[in-house]
Design a protein around this nucleic acid. Sequence first.
DNA 1: CACACTACAATTGTTGACAATTGACATTCG
DNA 2: CGAATGTCAATTGTCAACAATTGTAGTGTG
Lengths: 223, 223
Amino acid sequence: MTLNAIDILRSNSLPTLLEQEIERVILGGEFAPGDHVNEKELALRFGISRGPVREALRSLDSSGLVEQVPNRGFFVRRLTAAQARDIYDVRAVLFGLAGKLLAERITDEGVDQLRAFIAEMDTAVAANDFEAYVKINFVFHEFIVVSAGNPTLAQQYMTLVKQLRLYRARNLMLGDSMHASHQEHHAMVDAVAARDPARASLAHARHVEAAKERLMSTAPNLK
Amino acid sequence: MTLNAIDILRSNSLPTLLEQEIERVILGGEFAPGDHVNEKELALRFGISRGPVREALRSLDSSGLVEQVPNRGFFVRRLTAAQARDIYDVRAVLFGLAGKLLAERITDEGVDQLRAFIAEMDTAVAANDFEAYVKINFVFHEFIVVSAGNPTLAQQYMTLVKQLRLYRARNLMLGDSMHASHQEHHAMVDAVAARDPARASLAHARHVEAAKERLMSTAPNLK
DNA sequence: CACACTACAATTGTTGACAATTGACATTCG
DNA sequence: CGAATGTCAATTGTCAACAATTGTAGTGTG
């Protein structure tokens, strides 16, 4: 089901669309953490005035992806290791809640979908296709928090996932991390399929905690 | 320690200050959920142009306090009972984490401060001074999440607390709720003072869950 | 050579103007 | 009388212009 252009404009204004586009540009790696985000260039690039660009950047500031410095402009947020750790801790409890809610409400079709994600990631792991794994992993996580049925939870969780991409972009995931990570995915889905909220909550939270430890062990610097 | 005017402007731009001011106006009850937030009037009121007002409102949109409708403007967010429940669920796990972290790192001075808050609320409860209780309660909660030492947690938690004020503004807290609420505060602080992370986590999460039940039992409508 | 000062281009912060949209009200028609 | 249409004021969305700020480069001095 696709929206036509009129419907798109009816439900989105320029700053909203811009926000998504700039977010894509930032998280896509075109900007590094700490990079200056030039309003004028962005306005030229999208063929619009600076007003809506500033509005979009304000939103991204609130989402924690950029930081505004008065009279100097917006900069892609730079995360310290300590900040990344903090974000992971919050993300872990949120994901634990998502796992619990999911186990309480999952449908048979939902379990099938989760298994399908697992199979896709199995394939990527077997082929050592890191890039494919990361993509499916993102969609898998998003599916989980959206399916948990609590929009506030999904929004807060995805905000943190995006913030962490600012940190992870600097640190490559190692192959054995991918394997370990995926073992945890199996455990998560097994718990959900068993409709065991406590086990699912624990498996989900532990997955994020383990991801934190894996990431921090490959990036020991505190600053 | 007060900043002089130059320092304030150095570290804040107009939209940032405006955001805080508009937030105060909204949460202070001047606007009801669903009310239209008129850019032009706000600009006149603060003696500035509409540009910075729009930027500030964009931020508040990202924080979930207002909602933007294309070509119609910004409206104070209206929460359904189901949405409020979702927010409470997320808030509960966050507060649980805050309690755990606090129990792990609280100082003797910190415990004294918590006890001081409790004493103040004891006084308010004994005097049936609901208004004073609500104020101290807010500061008490803020102190807890800030003292937990995880800025991401504090920011996400306070964002949810503010959002819930949009819902609670419509529902008065009853006297017995205040008494029950405060019993839970005692349990929370006892667990933290005992440096028992698991007990503190449980007490904090339960407090928010109980607050949810109290609020929902006084507002049965789902819309 | 290092530091201080000056000039200036680039950028940010804000403003007021104009075009587009919407809701409220009045008028017309069946 | 109710529904449809037209009008218009208020407001939103965006733009370009201007003032203010900042960083950089060049120059002068000890």
